[in-house]
Write a protein that binds this DNA or RNA. Sequence first.
DNA 1: AATGAATGAGGATTCATTCAT
DNA 2: GATGAATGAATCCTCATTCAT
Lengths: 191, 191, 191, 191
Amino acid sequence: MPKIGMEPKRRAALVDAAIFEIGKARSLDVTVAQIARRAGMSSGLAHHYFGGKEQMLLAAMRHILAVFAGRVSEGLRQAETPRARLEALIRANFEDHVFDPQKTSAWLSFYGMAQSNAEAARLMQVYQRRLRSNLLHDLRFLSPNPEAVSTALGALIDGAYLRAALAGTGPNPKAAQPVLMTLDALIGDAK
Amino acid sequence: MPKIGMEPKRRAALVDAAIFEIGKARSLDVTVAQIARRAGMSSGLAHHYFGGKEQMLLAAMRHILAVFAGRVSEGLRQAETPRARLEALIRANFEDHVFDPQKTSAWLSFYGMAQSNAEAARLMQVYQRRLRSNLLHDLRFLSPNPEAVSTALGALIDGAYLRAALAGTGPNPKAAQPVLMTLDALIGDAK
Amino acid sequence: MPKIGMEPKRRAALVDAAIFEIGKARSLDVTVAQIARRAGMSSGLAHHYFGGKEQMLLAAMRHILAVFAGRVSEGLRQAETPRARLEALIRANFEDHVFDPQKTSAWLSFYGMAQSNAEAARLMQVYQRRLRSNLLHDLRFLSPNPEAVSTALGALIDGAYLRAALAGTGPNPKAAQPVLMTLDALIGDAK
Amino acid sequence: MPKIGMEPKRRAALVDAAIFEIGKARSLDVTVAQIARRAGMSSGLAHHYFGGKEQMLLAAMRHILAVFAGRVSEGLRQAETPRARLEALIRANFEDHVFDPQKTSAWLSFYGMAQSNAEAARLMQVYQRRLRSNLLHDLRFLSPNPEAVSTALGALIDGAYLRAALAGTGPNPKAAQPVLMTLDALIGDAK
DNA sequence: AATGAATGAGGATTCATTCAT
DNA sequence: GATGAATGAATCCTCATTCAT
């Protein structure tokens, strides 16, 4: 059954399956066999492609981050003023898809993993820096103190998401409200 | 050599040991045997007192939350105005002891656990409600919109702590700055 | 079923079982589960007592060497002259029990293991030194060149055993003949 | 890009690679994939040519024995008297190349394999018989008891090699000394 | 001929939990 | 109450071998 050009498909299938199983278990305590079975292949092949369970989980996280980054980019493309871009950015962090139980499970679990796994920590940093960079880009036009405001808004976004995710009540666009309100407060009349 | 009145001491020793081991492992992946050994007793006894590993971890979380709540109360006792109490509350969330690697490990790991364990989720809710209640108590005097501001500040505190904890750079009182700044912005001239 | 004072018995049972299984497989490719089952316990307990498969195999080798050393000592005790002691020593190396398939399997397999495992190599050295020391002790009275003769006889003993073991034809006291003949030749008229 | 006449080259490359990997691992615990990779081909092709791992290892052993036999023949060609031939034969067993870690690893490991694999045992017999035949050929002229002396010298050569190989200290021409000394003693004045 | 994808059995090891003492 | 011996299920990972292409 071997075919050429299967590697990308197999890897993608495994990443999807890993995310699915993490969502189902609501934890990273999933077995390679589970993931492989869901991806329609043997556990041996899963190891062949990823070298180990950890690499597979990291690939899953990387994929989640990449998809998310893509969505954010899309959201920003349509906004034209700095204020509109900021709002789009904030809303992008609370779109329905990020509340998919699969995503929230993975995201919160990776907070734990990031403490003992250097690569997981690095991925978290990448995410944080990207968010900060996006905030800063537009806050420069709106605030006399863009650095501090970016820091506060970044933390607030993460905190608001964390709480919404923990609540486990599914998609919740309202979760963006406190962030938008705080944005207004922090940039004063500049809006 | 069983002694009477040992149960509370045994339980406390196990809870301390659990927190220690979680900190050392930077994860909840610690074994009952490790914890029991550190607490100076057999793994069998640990089970006897807690009924299982999960209960032991939950007791550890409960203890961390209780200690934290106590510290917050202390901090609030000395403040006299609503504004001072809010500041004290915020600072209490970023005191050195909360950045003890044992605490940050436990805290972030429990975010993961709270997804699949109802009691862990409940504990997180208790913490969040207490924080919200504390914020609300004083924000009523300072903001026309105390509910929304409490929500935002609560999320911000969690987010700021999360980021500081993930950074893993130890005690960091500066982490409170963005929150204090946002407080000022959100309550306007009311300060 | 736990009992106190079981550890020595368990360890001994595992060592015996390991030797038995090595003999049956005629190789070190035996599983921990096989050994544990034969020893009448779970694989988990086997790990508990030895920490791992390698340690168990080494303990088996150590036991074989110890038993062998004991037998040699016995054999030497009854000899009175240096010449008689040498002969007893040589014969001890070819007694029936050393041709037990369990022993030959273990012995030859450990030659392989000694190449990549430091402890196995050390055990082999211990055996060789002991043999050399025993030879030297009496050759001092019989040869002007005891060092060289010890070296030659030690190697010859090992080579003769190796060949007899490889032949796999079971107990073979005749295997000692070439060594005894060579002893005579090497110590000349001194006998 | 299959080519005709590649089979002998492929097989030779695999045999060389197998010997190399056995030397590197200092054990027969090498994987087919490792060997095939080193030989510059796929594991599938390795199977195609040898039918299985065991056959490949046996081919490696056969090759080592053949090369060794060739070297011995060369050594003997230049000797003219029986005594000189015997000495050349003995020295050939301790030339530098036989202490190549690759060779010692393979040799000692095959002692283990010979216990459970009939073909490996047969190869060992072939080697032993050839050595014995070579010894006997010249000892007939030098000893009244050539059979027994051949047996002893053969065993001694193997034992001396075994010890030198186990010591793992590399090329060691001195290892031949005990054998030469014993030769003298065994053939007495006949030299 | 040649590849390497794919399988799946097998094995060492870990660990929560139980229970005889 | 207290121990730690004992279990055995669970899991990751390896690898010889097969086979579609």
